Amino acid sequence: MLFWTTCQTGMSSRQLKNRSMRKNKSPLIFFPQQRKNYFKKMRKEKEAELFREQLQQRDQIIELLAKQMQDEIIARAVAEQETKEERKLKEKEEKRIAELKSIATHRVTMLIVAVVIYLYISQLSSPSLIQSRCHLALVT
């Protein structure tokens, strides 16, 4: 076959080899052992390329997962902080309401005491009247 190719094109085998390497960037393979070695080399290169691609894909997936985990951690921390703030606000509001109720109760009690004292002082002449009015004030 080498002879036929050389005679037909008018080029030597070296020239054919150089020309084929320029066009295809792969040499013409004339002998079975060369062909076998060439395909072994090509297979190894392809396997190495596939392995590199797998590693790149795995690294990309790991980066994405890390970002997602970071986002989840941040979101969880923000949610916890918000619940703590809500709980504190709720406790403050409950405390304020309880204080207002105690103030209102104290004011009512003081008002009743003031009314009783006023009635006692203003009408010392009739103790039964004072008792009846104090009873009405305490009931209302």
Rank of each mutant, 00 (worst) to 15 (best):
K46D: 08
Q54I: 07
E47K: 10
E94L: 05
W4G: 07
A104G: 00
A48Q: 11
P32C: 00
K92M: 08
K41C: 03
K46F: 11
S126R: 09
K67Q: 14
K92C: 03
Q81I: 00
A48R: 10
W4D: 13
T105F: 00
E72K: 09
N37K: 04
E53I: 10
D71Q: 14
I121A: 08
E93I: 00
D71F: 11
R76H: 04
N37S: 07
M110I: 08
T109V: 10
P27D: 07
L138Y: 09
K90Q: 01
S125V: 08
Q33V: 03
P127T: 03
P27N: 06
L2I: 15
E85K: 01
V139E: 06
T9Q: 04
H135F: 13
V139H: 06
L136A: 12
S126K: 09
I130A: 09
E53Y: 06
E47P: 01
I121W: 09
R52A: 13
I97D: 06
Q60Y: 03
T105R: 02
L119Q: 02
E63P: 01
A79C: 05
R14K: 13
R43G: 04
T6H: 05
L28P: 03
N18L: 14
Q34P: 02
D71A: 14
E93G: 00
I117C: 10
S102I: 05
R76A: 05
L138H: 08
V139W: 03
V108L: 08
V108A: 07
Q54Y: 09
K88N: 03
V115Y: 03
E80I: 04
R35V: 02
I130C: 12
R22M: 10
A48E: 10
N18E: 15
Q131V: 14
P32D: 03
L16Q: 13
T83S: 05
W4E: 14
A75E: 12
Y118R: 07
E93M: 01
I29G: 01
